[in-house]
Write a protein that binds this DNA or RNA. Structure first.
Length: 586
RNA sequence: GCCAACGUAGCUCAGUGGUAGAGCAGCUCAUUCGUAAUGAGCAGGUCGUGAGUUCAAUCCUCACCGUUGGCUCCA
């Protein structure tokens, strides 16, 4: 009890540190338990992670759920024994001798300078020891709540060229209550899973006949089209033009763009009449052709071309997931062809538009990542220097928080990615803005400058939603399927109490429809209670109930999906109210 | 792609070496009801696909397909 009070009194940083140390300590106890049951298992790494920890073991068979139970029991004994964590220092070379039979530990040590001291940490009276950076609790008994969650294969250092290790995930908390809260939170988040809601709300489904390719039902299509309509409004404001381009192209194009060399594993190819075609995974080469189809002047720049063309990417079978990673997708894609000097202005205005859009959906938990030059790249160092400075200054002056990742940029240019978390906190890349120094070279794009010289434009790839499918997926989870009025597939349902009210209800429906409101009349012979329940389950924003009183007075009894009953209003009043709310996107 | 689990009616799920059930949804009939489920009846499945073992496979074995979770928040 004293501990719990103490934990509450810690600063957020101290709390985080406490949890990290406890989770890392739990990883040690886990490792001990595994080596007891599976003596051949080799230790590798076991860091604390958000909400828990994991440990990777080499030289062992995959763990079964049964194994996990046994391991958890073994851990319990170790924690009950409440032994001390003891750290000892050695020289790196001494440590190498100790772990010589474990190639993973050897590799870790080889990454540490020879003159540095390293630490080992033991517990259980020295019966278990592990090479370890440090950061533990005082005693094993300080691990107040823990639970093993799952086992999975994981490559050493995340590289599939390396051996596959067996990983065990667990969670650990400062108290049983905290752990309970966490597990409850996960359970709640699973209810928001967009795949479940997509089925329940009749938005989309999947079928093995087209793996990882969603079929959007009418209701899902309404939402997607609303997303597109909205972005087209923004394009009007931010001065973009829309274009349309072919779906499949002769392989020559992909050779020229470089996709054949760099991206063909992710492309679908079709042979027709002994010629090979590639289905487009991206729009940029087509847009480059459009640019090239005319001689260009600096007066035309920047050109902003948006394309809602359908793309196909042959994602590896193990990585597809619901709507968040699909093989058939549409992006709110656009390419900006501009001068090098215009880059700053273009990206700044794009980020402004993106923030405006995300605010409209109520996202407030997205993050930015700036990816800087990789080792393998095209373009001069001078170009990279300038471009990176422009992006960095933009982000700094915007006040938006971001992380800079050295070496993570594309070979063709630096980029800023925007990530949005799903219900379970997994990040998905949605928005992106990428500079491209390569495409203009490959397609030999030029414009006539003011002085008559021929100059190379820069291409900016950019999207706010990214894939509309993915964006819809995270949006559904963000909203728990409760779409605001402007996005709701069905905005209102008219509920006649008895058959004799049906005619009036249909008249009401016609009036709302004429005003452009998506409305349905529920004239099934269910009872009113059942109709309301149905509308609630479908998360329909408004229920317009009509009985004798309403027909008599020519009004509507308006119920919201939050269960609130508004004052009776006329059809005209209700229409006006809805239209206003739709326009406000509130 | 790799590791693991899973795949039974439209959906959610039971179930057994002797060719399958429930709830919801659907359809029919009755009911006409004031803010989250009216009642009765009917219909619905080559148990993911293909092989194999067996007298007999939805169940056991193998392969394939698909889905789900995981595959650097580094000693």
């Amino acid at each position: 009890m004293a501990d719990r009070v103490k934990f509450k009194d810690l600063s957020p940083e101290e709390q985080q540190d406490h949890r990290d140390r406890m989770r890392h300590s739990a990883a040690h106890v886990l490792a001990e338990a595994v080596t007891k049951i599976f003596p051949d298992a080799q230790l590798t790494i076991g860091p604390p992670i958000e909400d828990g920890f994991y440990y990777d073991f080499a030289n062992t068979e995959p763990f079964t759920p049964d194994d996990l139970m046994k391991i958890e029991l073994e851990m319990r004994d170790s924690i009950r024994a409440n032994t001390e964590f003891v750290e000892r220092e050695t020289s790196r070379d001494e440590a190498l001798d100790i772990v010589i039979d474990n190639p993973y530990k050897v590799e870790i040590l080889e990454g540490i300078p020879a003159d540095e001291r390293v630490t080992f940490c033991s517990h259980s009276e020295g019966a278990f020891e592990d090479l370890c950076r440090g950061g533990h609790m005082t005693r094993t008994g300080d691990i107040k709540a823990y639970k093993l969650l799952s086992a999975a294969g994981a490559y050493w250092r995340g590289d599939e060229e390396n051996a596959m290790l067996q990983r065990i995930y667990g969670t650990a908390w400062e108290s049983r209550d905290a752990q309970k809260t966490y597990l409850k939170k996960i359970e709640e988040a699973e209810k928001r899973d967009h795949r479940k809601l997509g089925r329940a709300l009749d938005l989309f489904f999947f079928d093995p006949i087209a793996p990882a390719s969603p079929f959007f039902m009418p209701k899902g299509t309404v939402v997607l089209n609303s997303l597109i309509t909205y972005v087209k409004e923004l394009y009007e404001k931010y001065d973009y033009d829309e274009v349309m381009t072919p779906q499949i192209f002769n392989t020559d194009l992909w050779e020229k763009s470089g996709h054949l060399q760099a991206y063909s594993e992710n492309m679908f190819f079709i042979d027709v009449d002994e010629r090979q075609f590639g289905v487009k995974p991206m729009n940029c080469p087509a847009h480059a052709m459009m640019y090239q189809s005319n001689s260009r002047s600096y007066r035309e720049l920047p050109l902003r071309w948006a394309d809602f063309g359908r793309l196909h990417r042959n994602e590896r079978s193990g990585v597809t997931a619901g709507l968040t990673r699909v093989r058939s997708l549409v992006q709110d894609d656009a390419h900006i062809f501009c001068t090098f000097e215009q880059i700053g202005q273009e990206i700044s205005s794009f980020l402004k538009m993106l923030n405006e859009a995300y605010a409209a959906f109520g996202f407030d938990n997205y993050r930015f990542e700036l990816s800087l030059r990789p080792d393998k790249r095209v373009g001069s160092d001078e170009m990279w220097d300038k471009a990176e400075v422009v992006l960095t200054e933009l982000l700094d002056s915007s006040g938006m928080e971001y992380t800079a990742e050295a070496g993570e940029g594309a070979f063709y240019g630096p980029k800023i990615d925007v990530f949005i978390p799903d219900a379970l906190g997994r990040d998905w890349q949605c928005g992106t803005v990428q500079l491209d120094f390569s495409l203009p070279e490959r397609f030999d794009l030029e414009y006539a400058a003011e002085d008559g010289s021929r100059q190379r434009p820069v291409v900016v790839h950019r999207a706010m939603y990214g894939s509309l499918e993915r964006f819809l997926g995270v949006l559904i989870e963000h909203l728990s399927g409760v779409f605001p009025l402007w996005l709701a597939p069905v905005q209102a349902v008219v509920v006649p109490i008895a058959d004799r009210h049906n005619d009036f209800c249909h008249e009401v429906g016609v009036k709302f429809k004429a005003a452009g409101i998506r409305i349905k009349v529920d004239d099934s012979n269910d009872r009113m209670n059942a109709k309301i329940r149905q509308a609630q389950l479908q998360k329909i924003p408004y229920m317009l109930v009509v009985g004798d009183r309403e027909v008599e007075a020519g009004t509507l009894a308006v119920r919201t999906r939050t269960g609130e009953n508004l004052d009776p209003m006329s059809v005209d009043e209700a229409v006006a109210k809805f239209l206003e709310q739709i326009a406000d996107k509130s």
